[in-house]
Simulated scan of single mutants.
Amino acid sequence: MSGQSPEPAGTLHGVPAAPGAGLAAQLGGLLQRAARGDQAAFADLYDATSSRMYGLAVRVVRDPAQAEEVTQEAFLEVWKTSSRFDPDRGSALSWILTICHRKAVDRVRSAEAATRRDTSYHQQNSTIDHDATSDAAQASMEAQRVRKALGGLTDVQREAIELAYFGGYTHTEVASMLDLPVGTAKTRIRDGLIRLRDKMGVGQ
């Protein structure tokens, strides 16, 4: 035969991404290996869970483009904080989906807050929450750290990450803009996320 057929989306080395003790154990192992800096393990984890994470995100934010952004933000958080996963407190999939759900809810709340500011500026201005201001400042500082770390990526990884993470483009749009197959664009984004964590010194 000239080649092998690609594995269906949502599989892990040929294992369907469906609930089960076997898959749960595999995902847990991959997450723990990713916490130790195993890039191949994170790549497998990404491939095995990205469809489910996107599905959760799109149900919450109700917008496919924003759901892709949320999914990428969630994976960056998973990669940065994977050392915090405790298998005794729940499954890896549950832990990952919780991060994704929180990111999606934060996106919805942010959009709602922006709408309130636009339609009722004075009312919103009189009830500014100090914690919200602090969170915004912290998010800005984090973004600066990420941008600095981007300098350590390869040109192709940085280009893909900047379009997806900062430009807000979907995988399909990134692939079209870079004249790449969608799968290649996803791989560059995923690998870029891996190197971002390394450059930012997270988990070391």
Rank of each mutant, 00 (worst) to 15 (best):
G29S: 13
A34Y: 00
A35R: 01
S91H: 08
D38S: 13
R84H: 11
A74I: 01
R62S: 12
G90I: 04
W79M: 08
A48G: 02
L56Y: 03
R52T: 08
L23Y: 04
T49F: 01
M53N: 08
F42A: 04
T81A: 12
D38G: 11
A57D: 09
S82C: 05
V61C: 10
T81S: 15
Q32S: 15
A74Q: 05
R62A: 14
R84K: 15
F75P: 00
R84V: 02
S91F: 03
G90C: 09
F75Q: 06
S83Q: 11
V70W: 02
L27R: 02
A43N: 13
D38L: 04
P64I: 08
Q39D: 15
A67V: 02
R33W: 06
P64H: 11
E69F: 05
G29C: 05
A25C: 12
S83D: 11
D88M: 09
D63V: 06
W79D: 07
G22V: 12
E69S: 09
D44K: 07
P64T: 06
F85W: 07
T71H: 01
R89K: 15
Y46K: 04
V58M: 13
D86K: 09
L30W: 00
G37H: 06
P87D: 14
A57C: 13
S82F: 00
A21P: 03
E69R: 12
A35H: 04
R52Y: 02
Q32E: 14
R52M: 11
Q72P: 00
V78F: 01
G28D: 05
A67N: 12
S51R: 14
E73V: 01
D47C: 11
A21Q: 14
P87V: 10
L30K: 04
V60C: 11
D47N: 14
A41H: 09
Q66L: 12
E68Q: 15
A41E: 07
A25F: 01
G22I: 08
F85H: 11
F85L: 09
L56F: 03
A74Y: 00
L31T: 02
D63I: 05
L76D: 04
A48R: 03
R52S: 10
A35M: 03
F75M: 10
A48F: 07
V70E: 06
Q32A: 13
Q26G: 04
R33E: 14
R33Y: 00
T49V: 13
F85C: 09
L56I: 09
R84Y: 05
D38Q: 13
E69A: 13
D86T: 07
S50Q: 12
Q32P: 03
E68P: 03
Y54K: 12
W79A: 10
D38N: 14
A43M: 06
L23H: 03
L31S: 06
Y46L: 15
G22S: 10
F85S: 08
R33T: 06
R36H: 12
K80C: 11
A43C: 13
D47P: 00
A35Y: 00
R84C: 01
P87L: 10
R62Y: 09
G22K: 05
F42E: 03
A24M: 10
A65R: 15
R62L: 13
Q26L: 13
D38Y: 01
R84M: 06
L56A: 11
A65Y: 06
L31H: 05
L56T: 10
D88H: 12
